[in-house]
Computed example of a mutant assay.
Amino acid sequence: MKIILLYCRAGFEGECSQEIQEKASLVGVFGYCKTSKGQGFVEFVLSNAKDAHKVFNKVQLSSLIFTRQWARVSEPLEEVSREDRVQPIIDLLLSENRQVCGRVSVDSPDSEGTANLKTFTRKFTAPISKALRQNGLLTAKQDASLNVLCLFFSDFDKVYIGELDSQNSSSDHLGIPRLKFPKGAPSRSTLKLEEAWRTFFDKDEWYELLGGHQKAVDLGACPGGWTWQLVNQGMDVFSVDHGPMDEELMKSGHVTHVLEDGFVYKPPKKVDWMVCDIVDKPKRVSSMIIDWLVGGYCTKTVFNLKLPMKKRYQEVQECLQLIESALAENGLSCRIQAKQLYHDREEITCFIQVI
């Protein structure tokens, strides 16, 4: 398996390609990318399977901003009969003496026009799982210690066969967390912050980072989607925006609406959290984040960087480098993570914690 298949947001295949080539080169692995704009995945082709394993051993999925999920795969099996897709897959796996896997993931691109393909992959999971067990290729019960067999259908008659690494892949199908819009939340943007927390925090960090009746500031808060999440964690929130806040949220007694410009406002006392979903130039937002952290106004922040139409990967790298350099120059040791989340669009979400 000398191909690394990377799942990404449709339209960001170029950024995904740039990033994996850069990350792989830093560990001494070089290859080329094959993709088409809007298809929602990238093929990173290497000279041998050993290089693919080296990338998975040296590069963590969590360090890739534009990749949701990735798998080691072989050249695709093409022109698969639509009358019987199961047997060609079983025959290939048996001919390669594949080891037993602990689970099977039947995947497809998350891109425009793939609704019917997604429906098919959901229905195909049961028959292929049954056949895999009958042929000794899948454990009777799921085993998280074993790698996951990956079957990625880019079309109805084209499938990539490979594996998801048990130690270095997303536990969410396609790398997309299944979140329900919470009853009472003022806007769908609330899911961005919830996904950010689930992406950046381990389960055992949840209370440490969010619990204990903390204080928070939400910049650009209107109508309160992110404020709702903070309040739901038991925080008292200063919601900064000239626009109106959700009336029911204001009745909670945990929100103070501050009618000021988010780029100007600073809290009278240090708070635990600052979150920001303001639509503005990414470097202006980055400079504001630096001011907050260097000035000691908060110790934890989640914020979005709205990306330009062109040179998006370059802009991301410049903004993160700007922040990292400024924090280091001021003697701050920080944990910095960034990801293009499922609920993001033309943006990435960042998390920084002063350690």
Rank of each mutant, 00 (worst) to 15 (best):
E247M: 14
Q18N: 15
L46H: 05
Q340K: 08
K50C: 05
D143V: 10
E19A: 04
A221W: 04
Q214P: 05
I3L: 01
M1A: 12
K203Q: 15
G234W: 09
R178Y: 11
E315M: 15
E315Y: 02
L61C: 07
D202K: 14
T256D: 13
D91Q: 15
A196N: 06
V42R: 00
D246K: 08
S154W: 00
V80I: 15
C319Y: 03
P186H: 05
S81H: 04
D84K: 09
P177H: 07
T125N: 12
A216F: 06
N304K: 04
D110Q: 11
V240I: 13
A131R: 03
S286E: 05
G175Q: 04
L307K: 00
P109A: 02
A326I: 08
G331E: 05
D107A: 11
R103Q: 13
Q142A: 14
F120N: 04
V159W: 01
G220P: 03
R68Y: 06
S252A: 08
P282M: 05
V217P: 00
C298I: 05
E112Y: 08
Y265V: 08
N97Q: 15
F263N: 03
T119S: 14
I90R: 01
V29C: 08
D241A: 07
L259Q: 14
D272R: 08
H53I: 09
A196D: 04
S81G: 10
F238T: 06
Q69A: 04
D241K: 06
G102Q: 06
N135M: 06
A328E: 15
V104F: 02
S252P: 08
L137G: 03
L94M: 14
E96H: 11
Q167V: 12
P244D: 14
D202Q: 15
Q60S: 14
A144S: 14
V27Q: 09
D218I: 05
C33E: 00
G136I: 06
G211C: 07
S111V: 03
K339Q: 11
I128L: 05
T121M: 05
F156G: 02
K203G: 14
V240H: 08
V258P: 05
K269T: 13
S171T: 14
G224V: 03
A126H: 14
Q340R: 10
E75P: 10
S189D: 03
C276K: 02
W197K: 09
Q87H: 13
V148K: 11
I176L: 10
P186R: 06
E15R: 02
K311S: 13
E15N: 00
F124V: 09
D84P: 04
L209W: 11
T119K: 15
I4D: 01
V148Y: 00
V45N: 10
S129D: 06
G102V: 07
S187I: 09
G102P: 07
G296A: 08
Q229R: 12
L132G: 00
G212V: 11
C350S: 11
Q314M: 10
A71F: 14
T301S: 14
P308V: 07
